[in-house]
Design a binder for these strands. Structure first.
Length: 453
RNA sequence: CGGGCAGUAGCGCAGUCUGGUAGCGCAUCAGUCUGGGGGACUGGGGGUCGUGGGUUCGAAUCCCGCCUGCCCGACCA
């Protein structure tokens, strides 16, 4: 052991060196995985299944999950939502108050503790957040409120499949808005629409908002966000006018209901619908060259449902005139773990994953093509130390082919290829994963490009 | 939950029909040669054949039960 310690460098960042990392890639497709994202997630060492529909997240997968969560978090915060963290286990009493304990089917995982008290692993959090809100907020002066959390949920699906896209345990961002009246609730809804469009754009995917069925509650305030992917569960139809809009560069005053309304109109005017909501008459009115049709994976859902829970659970606030008001609620979900699969469905090729830079587990892989060669080793170490948190250094003594194949599979946006010939001149080959372009560059130029991405 | 298929080494599979004590490729370990797209050679390690019972002198193989996983459907973020 003493020899091992002596061999270690003084600065430890072992997890990013492939030779010492827990990033088990597979050359062959596991038989259990049928769809491309599931295969790639297993092969790239992002997850391992531990039970039907339940996955362990390995280091690279966890980094993706965290990167997605962080973008979601920043955009929620930006529209004034406040983060909380509610537990995974909930008391059945809470659900009995809303009447959903009996209404919810066998998808709810019910548990008993040692005192025979009934618990459940939360499939969603309307009851709990309504209760928490009601305990703390008593006056119109403390309204409105928007709370969210990012937490694991469980739905005991009859048939889990498609890897993390239809698992039983899944990570989700749930936000809940509480408003004094309908007009204010509409503004909350609009704000969330903006946050969602910005979020998905930052995640590097196109998620199109589509009118969704509001069910028995009625109204028009329900949209699903779908990522186009051939394995999607719904057929989608939309107007190409929704493509290539830059929501990050669209200034909207989130405090102004008028500005929000105008923005919302702009988003919802072009035709967009899933097959359940498809209106062929309206579709025919879309110019033919702008019709986009395909399949989509639902990765987000925003929904206004009014006073359903506040009334059922008798949670009210006192208005300025002394009357009691049941707050208007909305809920807003983003399937964080599902997004990992959905994004891979939408962004891969025959060699592996192509990560959008914003969520990639590593910005770049450094491929040392001749481990043991002094020049190569030194140059790789130098590059690696520029950003050890975001670079993955492939220092394994494998053949070049294996390193290229693994780097392509894992989908790093950039590959910094360090070979013995060019290393002598301080040059590397920089490969962009998305396009396959390669450029022979000085180390400085290559680093500048990668670090600016 | 209906219909179909499958569990044999870390992964992918053969062997099951016709019972005789388990094999191939990849991975892994040691070594040598290699070194820019999953390299070659030599030698080695690794398997309660999902599980419980039954039939048999003998079961991965035949019979029954159970468990687990995958696909299609219904359902679903």
């Amino acid at each position: 052991m003493c020899c091992l310690h002596a061999a270690l460098p003084t600065r430890l960042s072992t997890t990013m060196r492939l030779s010492r990392s827990f990033l088990p890639t597979l050359k062959e497709n596991p038989a259990e995985a049928q769809i491309v994202s599931h295969r790639l997630m297993l092969r790239a060492g992002l997850v391992r299944q531990t039970a039907s529909g339940i996955y362990a997240w390995l280091p690279a997968g966890l980094k993706v999950l965290r990167n997605i969560s962080q973008i979601v978090r920043e955009e929620q915060d930006r529209v004034g939502a406040q983060e909380v963290l509610m537990p995974t286990l909930q008391s059945a009493d809470l659900w009995k108050r809303s009447g959903r304990y009996d209404a919810y089917g066998p998808e709810m995982l019910r548990i008993q503790d040692r005192h025979k008290r009934e618990l459940l692993y939360g499939p969603t959090n309307e009851e709990m957040i309504t209760d928490l809100f009601g305990q703390a907020v008593k006056s119109y002066k403390d309204m409105p409120q928007v709370l969210y959390h990012i937490q694991w949920k469980f739905r005991d699906e009859m048939r889990p499949r498609f890897g993390v896209m239809r698992g039983r345990e899944f990570l989700m961002k749930d936000a809940y808005s509480f408003d004094l009246d309908y007009a204010s609730a509409v503004a909350s809804y609009h704000r969330m629409m903006l946050a969602y469009l910005r979020t998905f754009q930052r995640l590097g995917v196109r998620a199109v908002p589509m009118r969704a069925d509001t069910g028995p509650i009625g109204g028009e305030l329900s949209h699903e966000f779908l990522i186009l992917a051939p394995t999607g569960e719904s057929g989608v139809f939309y107007d190409a006018a929704l493509e290539d809009q830059d929501w990050l560069d669209t200034p909207v005053d989130v405090e102004s209901p008028t500005a929000l309304e105008a923005f919302y109109t702009r988003v919802t005017t072009p035709y967009a619908a899933t097959d359940e909501m498809h209106d062929t008459t309206a579709w025919d009115a879309v110019p033919e060259d702008r019709r986009r049709e395909g399949r989509g994976v639902e990765v987000g859902h925003i929904f206004h449902f009014g006073t359903k829970y506040t009334k059922a659970m008798d949670v009210s606030v006192i208005a300025a005139d002394g009357s009691q008001i049941y707050p208007e609620m909305g809920s807003y979900g983003i399937g964080v773990s599902r997004l990992v699969g959905a994004i891979i469905e939408a962004s891969h090729d025959e060699n592996g994953i192509i990560w959008p830079a914003s969520i990639a587990p590593f910005k770049a892989a450094i491929l040392n093509l001749k481990v043991g060669d002094e020049t190569c080793d030194a140059l790789c170490e130098r590059i690696y130390n520029e950003n050890p948190e975001e670079f993955l250094y492939d220092d394994r003594s494998d053949r070049a082919g294996a390193k290229f194949a693994d780097a392509d599979l894992m989908g790093h946006p950039w590959q910094i290829v360090v070979g013995p010939r060019s290393a002598k001149e301080g040059r590397v080959e920089l490969k962009r994963r998305a396009t396959g372009e390669r450029h022979d560059l000085s180390v400085e130029d290559a680093l500048a490009l990668v670090l600016a991405d």
